[in-house]
Design a protein around this nucleic acid. Structure first.
Length: 404
DNA sequence: TCTGGGGTCCTAGGACCC
DNA sequence: TCTGGGGTCCTAGGACCC
């Protein structure tokens, strides 16, 4: 990426920093060679690395998103079925393509490099987990020259014993420690364990990883991006926040930004969480708390923020040094299909009755003024309606009877 | 000695990913 | 002075219902 935009950075150690230039989130090979670690807090290591010639850059996600789309378009020429997985990774379905797949992938790689100047590596496997593992080898081991194929059982038998199990997609630190405690070390060890044992130790997620390593696909390619389930705007403060006014201002900003994202995606949020925290790196006096509440589908940004602030005020402790806060919107629903999806009941008769009542009430008092909600775990319908300053909660059953 | 059983929903917390 | 931000999935256990 760096050399695509600034050729003078070729062979120069480069790091990219997170928001607020807090810590290292990407490094060039030269920076890795100098010992810069992923997640290093930059303020702690800047002096020594800058003395060694490391150049630092703030992150630019708009640019990365744009580059990602361009690469996606190039890859669509090599497979009609491309699933973008993250901003810098894509899965391609190669099933049914004629000819030598390795040659095909080398061609794709060369074309991406030629047209976007971005270097890439390709991993081929009969499951996503194997493709990810192959990609890792392609990146790390020069012998593969950027393309590694793990489809054949012979290649797996030869390579699995040479790879640590912590390299596997889905095996993080905690899982790796559990497996090591059982005496397992390599991918070969992991791929050979009993499925029930994998399930017992790592839950169903771990059993899936093992099956995928054995060549049974459990994670199908999904060409349509699934509906997202939540979104968040969170930040650490530049300087600790000591006053309620300062906190209120921060949360207002985050809530506004969250509402903007919501509209951009054509979504509505059903519930909202606000959290505030003191610095977790300062020992002895950590305090963190959160407030969650349901919000009306048609509520505007202003009342969204007001609710956020009311919710936060109740968890605010004035003697604390606040360091981080955030706003999260949950249970998102498509704005255009919202009314139907507001009814979580599985009972079609009740659902229809509820729907009709809601419709008539909404017609009378304005769209979205009434919605059903399942209160706690009680399977009782509750309608909550807000009319101007008047707020009341009533059993939906009573409303239904009244309007019948 | 006995105190129901089984299903469902919700939440918090852990773990993982990039 | 300064230690990221944004997601997903799974499980256990409590609460509730009939």
């Amino acid at each position: 990426m760096r050399t695509a935009f600034n050729p003078t950075l070729k062979n120069v150690p480069v790091v990219v920093l997170s928001n607020n230039d807090g810590c290292v989130i990407a490094r060039s090979q030269e920076a890795k060679d100098l010992g810069v670690k992923m997640g290093d807090p930059w303020f702690k290591v800047a002096k020594s690395y800058e003395a060694q010639g490391v150049r630092r850059f703030s992150s630019n996600y708009v640019l990365y998103g744009d580059m990602s789309r361009r690469i996606h378009h190039v890859l669509e020429r090599f497979s009609p079925r491309v699933e973008p997985y993250s901003i810098d990774e894509m899965f391609l379905d190669l099933k049914g393509l004629p000819g030598d797949l390795v040659a095909h992938c080398r061609d794709a790689r060369a074309t991406v490099k030629c047209e976007t100047k971005i270097p890439t590596c390709v991993g081929i496997g009969d499951t996503k987990t194997k493709a990810k593992l192959a990609n890792r080898l392609a990146k790390k081991r020069p012998q593969f020259n950027g393309v590694c194929d793990l489809r054949s059982a012979d290649d797996c038998a030869a390579l699995y014993p040479t790879i640590l199990l912590s390299e596997v997609w889905g095996i993080g630190g905690a899982s790796a420690r559990k497996l090591q405690a059982l005496g397992l070390e390599t991918v070969a060890d992991l791929a050979a364990i009993n499925l029930q044992q994998a399930r017992d130790v790592l839950t169903v997620t771990g059993a899936r990883v093992v099956m995928e390593l054995q060549g049974t696909s459990c994670l199908p390619l999904s060409l349509l991006a699934p509906q997202r389930k939540g979104l968040a705007v969170t930040r650490t403060f530049g300087a600790v926040v000591l006053t309620w006014d300062g906190m209120a201002e921060a949360i207002s900003t985050y809530a506004t930004r969250a509402a903007e994202k919501l509209r951009q995606h054509g979504l509505l949020a059903t519930s909202m969480t606000v959290f505030i925290q003191t610095n977790r790196f300062v020992t002895g006096d950590y305090y963190g708390n959160a407030a969650s509440f349901r919000i009306e589908p048609t509520q505007d940004t202003f009342s969204l923020i007001q609710d956020a602030l009311r919710g936060t005020r109740s968890i605010w402790q004035p003697d604390r040094k606040y360091w981080k806060a955030g706003v999260m919107l949950n249970e998102l629903i498509d704005a255009t299909t919202a009314p139907a999806q507001m009814f979580p009941t599985k009972d079609p008769v009740l659902s229809a009755k509820v729907m009709a009542t809601m419709d008539s009430l909404n017609q009378r008092f304005g769209r979205g003024c009434v919605r059903p909600a399942v209160a706690g775990t009680q399977k009782k319908w509750t309608a909550r309606a807000d009319f101007l300053s008047q707020r009341y909660t009533t059993r939906l059953n009573e409303i239904m009877e009244a309007s019948a």
